[in-house]
């Protein structure tokens, strides 16, 4: 039952992305910015790019720019068009609604990430591609986009204005990628023996081939907490 409901919400949201031209716009900007940053700022031609490190290095910043555009309509449109009351009055668990919307946005972003395949194909004519490292980078980027989609979903439940949602989500994601917890450790005088917690560094580990359990915990905890908060905001709004 719950799975069917999840499927329905997922398909409704996912096909919604394909109904208009926003898909061309979002994917087009994503691939243009990604390629430009890899070629012009990532020293793509100068360093050993068997794992496409130059391309993936900038993904946190690029996804922080793109993901809010993917997620901003998820709840905002429901508030703006007044369909939220109808949606919440359906016999569907709030968490299923949140999950359905989240998975739709994540699937959309995952397909967007696949747009790197042509670059892999063209590069493979000239260099040996390290597919193991590439797999690790893909995995990291998928987890990263999942966490970002969850945060974007959560932020979109806070406002009925898409532009504000976009901006708040963008700054929230930017904050996450640029926040270095060692700064907090210095502020609060925490002992240096505590491990470093750095979102970007954990992602960079993925692109250099280090798939660690603490990185999984970090990405998953952010995703789950954001989805939980999203459910709490929706239910709080309905009260």
């Amino acid at each position: 039952m719950a799975l069917n409901q999840l499927k329905t919400v997922f398909f409704k949201e996912f096909t919604g992305y394909l109904n208009n031209f926003s898909v061309f716009f979002i994917w087009g900007i994503y691939i243009a910015v990604s390629l430009a940053s890899a070629f012009y700022f990532g020293s793509y031609f100068l360093i050993d790019n068997s794992g496409l490190q130059s391309y993936f290095r900038f993904q946190p910043a690029i996804l922080a720019l793109i993901v809010p555009a993917v997620t901003m309509h998820l709840w905002t449109d429901e508030f703006r068009l007044g369909t939220i009351e109808f949606l919440l009055s359906q016999p569907v668990d709030y968490f299923i609604l949140v999950l359905g919307k989240f998975f739709a946005s994540w699937a959309f972003c995952s397909l967007m990430i696949l747009l790197v395949l042509p670059l892999i194909m063209v590069s493979s004519f000239f260099i040996d591609i390290n597919f193991l490292s590439l797999f690790s980078a893909f995995l990291g980027t998928l987890l990263l986009s999942g966490a970002f989609c969850a945060v974007g979903c959560m932020v979109s439940a806070l406002s009925s204005r898409p532009v504000i949602t976009y901006l708040v989500a963008f700054f929230a994601l930017w904050g996450i990628i640029s926040l270095k917890f060692e700064v907090l450790m210095t502020w609060f005088n925490l002992p240096e023996t505590l491990p470093e917690l750095n979102f970007s560094a954990l992602y960079l580990n993925f692109i250099s081939g280090r798939v660690s359990l603490d990185a999984f915990i970090c990405f998953f905890s952010l995703t789950i907490l954001a989805l939980w908060a999203n459910t709490a905001f929706i239910s709080g709004r309905n009260r």
């Binding site: 068997s50 597919f131 907090l184 470093e196 917690l197 081939g209 798939v211 359990l213 915990i217 905890s221």
Partner: peptide, 24 residues
């Protein structure tokens, strides 16, 4: 989020798979 991640880093920092393809 901080608590989970500090705990995770303390306990699992050395648990990882090497996907570098070069034994990095």
């Amino acid at each position: 989020f901080l608590l989970i991640n500090f705990g995770g880093s303390l306990l699992f920092n050395d648990r990882y798979l090497d996907f570098s393809g070069q034994d990095s």
